[in-house]
Amino acid sequence: MRTREDVLDWLSSLLAFGVKPGLERMQAMLLELQIDPDAIPTIHVAGTNGKGSTVAFLREMGIAEGLQIGTFTSPYIIQFEERIMLNGVPIAEDELVAAAIAVQAAIGHIDPALGTVTEFEALTGLAFYYFDQIRPDFVIYEVGLGGLYDSTNVFKKPFAAIITSIGHDHQAILGDTLQEIALQKFGIIKQGTPVIAGKLQEELTVPLMAYCGDRN
């Protein structure tokens, strides 16, 4: 791969493998890349609506304090590179290509029994590689789908977990009821990690408190 178009073509070729919830492939990829996802302080954001604006607000707050803030979001507005940014500046072409080459090589060493890496898993790998190289003060990761089995959910102890509003989304994968969907999103909460939640429906506050209580 030499250009951004090569990277995009490679990622698009992985679309055929669809969505395969699970963390085994992602964990194997990071192991091959020798990346510790907890080496950089991380804020993890899940929810149905408001994730993107929450990430943007946090990024600007961090920048105002003189911090280097990486962000991983989806989808993009103008250009693909917006999904991986440092202080609001999209990843440069040469850095994108270098990350893709490294991730593609790592994927080639993953046990085939784990299944084929998906497009979003590979994209998440690009973000982890890029931020591991530049080491910003914080990285804010937006969940792609759900939370519990999302490819971003490889942290053992993020700096904070944020749950925005929750609604009926991706029901074929996450569940039919709000409670089932919420439990998938609560999956980013780890033991000892501070949790910030937006305004949730009354029927979700008790499950959230119970989930957090189990992880104290």
Rank of each mutant, 00 (worst) to 15 (best):
M1I: 06
T3R: 10
E5Y: 02
D6Q: 09
D6M: 10
V7A: 06
L11P: 00
S13H: 00
L14E: 03
L14Y: 12
A16H: 12
F17A: 11
G18M: 04
G18T: 07
K20I: 10
P21N: 13
G22M: 03
L23W: 00
M26Y: 06
A28M: 10
M29T: 01
L30Q: 07
L31N: 15
L31V: 13
L31C: 14
E32G: 15
I35N: 06
P37G: 06
P41I: 13
P41A: 09
V45Y: 08
A46M: 04
K51T: 04
S53L: 02
T54V: 12
V55R: 04
A56M: 09
R59K: 02
R59L: 04
R59H: 07
I63L: 04
E65S: 14
G66N: 00
Q68F: 03
I69R: 02
T71A: 09
F72K: 05
T73W: 04
S74F: 07
S74C: 13
P75R: 05
Y76P: 10
I77K: 13
I78N: 12
Q79P: 09
F80P: 11
E82I: 07
M85F: 07
N87F: 01
V89I: 14
P90K: 12
P90F: 03
E93C: 05
E93P: 10
D94W: 10
D94K: 15
L96P: 12
V97A: 03
V97L: 03
A98D: 13
A99Q: 03
A100R: 06
A102T: 14
A102Y: 10
V103G: 07
Q104C: 12
A106F: 03
I107H: 08
G108P: 03
A113Y: 11
A113H: 09
L114H: 08
L114C: 09
G115A: 00
G115Q: 02
T116S: 09
T116P: 05
T118P: 02
T118C: 11
E119K: 04
T124C: 01
G125W: 06
G125T: 12
F128K: 06
Y129P: 01
Y129G: 09
F131K: 04
D132G: 06
D132A: 15
Q133D: 00
R135C: 08
R135K: 15
P136K: 14
F138T: 10
I140D: 11
G144M: 07
G146N: 04
G146W: 02
T152S: 00
V154Q: 10
V154R: 00
F155G: 08
F155T: 13
K156V: 01
F159L: 14
A161G: 10
I166S: 09
I166K: 02
G167L: 08
H168A: 12
H168I: 15
H170I: 11
A172L: 08
L178W: 06
L178M: 08
Q179R: 07
Q179N: 06
L183P: 01
Q184M: 07
K185G: 02
F186K: 05
T193M: 05
V195T: 14
I196G: 02
A197H: 08
T205F: 08
T205N: 10
V206F: 11
M209R: 15
A210Y: 01
C212K: 05
G213N: 14
G213D: 10
R215L: 13
N216V: 13
N216W: 05
